[in-house]
Design a protein around this nucleic acid. Structure first.
Length: 115
DNA sequence: AGCCTGACGCCGC
DNA sequence: CGCGGCGCCAGGC
């Protein structure tokens, strides 16, 4: 039998993304690890690509790849929407990459007490 | 079932 | 430090 429930996975992703505070951002891999599926970073991206953030309010724009690059910007309304959303809360983007990524990065695993 | 693709990540070179 | 290769897993054909 498989313990993996897709709907459950999707909800876990949504919930974890919502914990990312304004002015910070995290990565697909960090989300995947924090919900117990360390090898599912690609699936996190797939889920966010279908989350319809405009309607659901899920801050998908706060999730980028492990290098701080806005790899999902094409899924937003305009080519600059993702960058603008981040800029509104003080996260600067240059050449499609978050500036000071190491400082902006927010790791759910370290910020959320799991023990 | 096999092959290709994708909002990924890590390791080499 | 950019670039390629490979591992990863679910979906569409």
């Amino acid at each position: 039998m498989s313990n993996f429930d897709k709907a459950d996975f999707i909800q876990a992703v949504y919930q974890m993304v919502k914990t990312v505070p304004r002015g910070r951002a995290t990565s697909y891999g960090a989300i995947a690890r924090s919900i117990g599926y360390p090898n599912m970073s690609r699936m996190v991206g797939t889920v966010l690509g279908n989350c319809n953030s405009a309607e659901t309010g899920i801050p998908a724009y706060r999730v980028v790849n492990s290098q701080g690059i806005l790899s999902g910007k094409d899924a937003f309304g305009t080519p600059t929407e993702m960058q603008e959303k981040l800029a509104e809360e003080g996260v600067m983007v240059e050449n499609n990459r978050i500036k000071d990524w190491k400082r902006v990065f927010w790791d759910p695993m370290k910020e959320i007490a799991t023990d």
